[in-house]
Design a protein around this nucleic acid. Structure first.
Ligand SMILES: [Zn+2]
Ligand SMILES: [Zn+2]
Ligand SMILES: [Zn+2]
Ligand SMILES: [Zn+2]
Lengths: 142, 142
DNA sequence: TATAAGCTTAGAGCTGACTCTAAGGTCAAC
DNA sequence: GTTGACCTTAGAGTCAGCTCTAAGCTTATA
């Protein structure tokens, strides 16, 4: 049985965050001391670590909530439900990756074009490019 | 001279967003009608388009604010200041890219491991992996 | 027994970039 | 001369995921 600060130490989540997750029904403390202190048993701890792992991977709290309800009643859920959540997350990640790669590309091109020196910015090609509407929407080999 | 809705149509920003940007001193309306309507002259329009371009590239409003103050007084600023902002943004982008690539990798591995079928999730290897603390922190060839 | 560290709660505050609302004034067209 | 589209403002609300505060108990240590 761990107290909240011990669970915090074990998971790397802050006590604040653990309480916040409890509000959202992600983490549970099966027991309370007479004074109201939270106590986490092995099952609670495993659940908290599941949450931590899922969060580290990048799942949203809403995703984690769904994954948890599958986890606690596996026979009522299918592998497909799990892959749906995972695939949807992967799609999101891929979309953000595209955006970021495009930004990366544009920024690299801008940086290459500018001397970067201590000269006055009157001739700065980055400023010029922005003025000219330089949206390099290029998506080639990253 | 454009009215706000015309500038909105021209830039693709909403009138709300234009007013919001004005609050943050990114976009300006040099003139107002007697009734208080905003009117944008050519210089205002060019500034708005600069803002739009910079935003599309991914610069934060704070970055854009700095880029604008360079733009309006180029002789008081150097190319280096411009590259500093740009490089800093690129560093941010690269960091987010790393995180997302790591997430992508993990999600792909998880998806490969799961049958994705209509079977009960009792044997689901994604759930198992999350339970086992499956943090694939792998950063190899994307 | 006293001090400090740790726990409790409801609820407010933070970030960034919008997005919208309410209540009203203005303007062009028919 | 009225309908309806457009404009104004200050300020509130939205999103996700925390993060912190205040005020007051509890527990462990010295
Ligand atoms: Zn230069
Ligand atoms: Zn330059
Ligand atoms: Zn399966
Ligand atoms: Zn499965």
């Amino acid at each position: 049985m761990l107290k909240i600060s011990e669970l915090a130490a074990k998971t790397g989540l802050s006590a604040h965050t653990i309480r916040f997750y409890e509000k959202h029904d992600l983490i549970r403390a099966s027991e309370r001391s007479e004074a109201g202190y939270r106590y986490y048993n092995d099952s609670d701890i495993r659940r908290a670590e599941f949450v931590k792992t899922a969060r580290n991977i990048g799942f949203s709290l809403e995703d984690i909530s769904q994954l948890l309800s599958i986890r606690v009643d596996k026979t009522s859920h299918s592998c497909q439900e799990v892959t749906d959540i995972t695939q949807h997350k992967l799609d999101e990640v891929n979309e953000k990756l595209s955006e970021l790669e495009s930004m990366q590309n544009t920024l690299q091109i801008l940086l290459k074009s500018c001397c970067g020196g201590p000269e006055k910015a009157t001739h700065c090609s980055i400023i010029e490019a922005l003025d000219a509407g330089a949206v390099v929407k290029n998506r080639s080999a990253a």
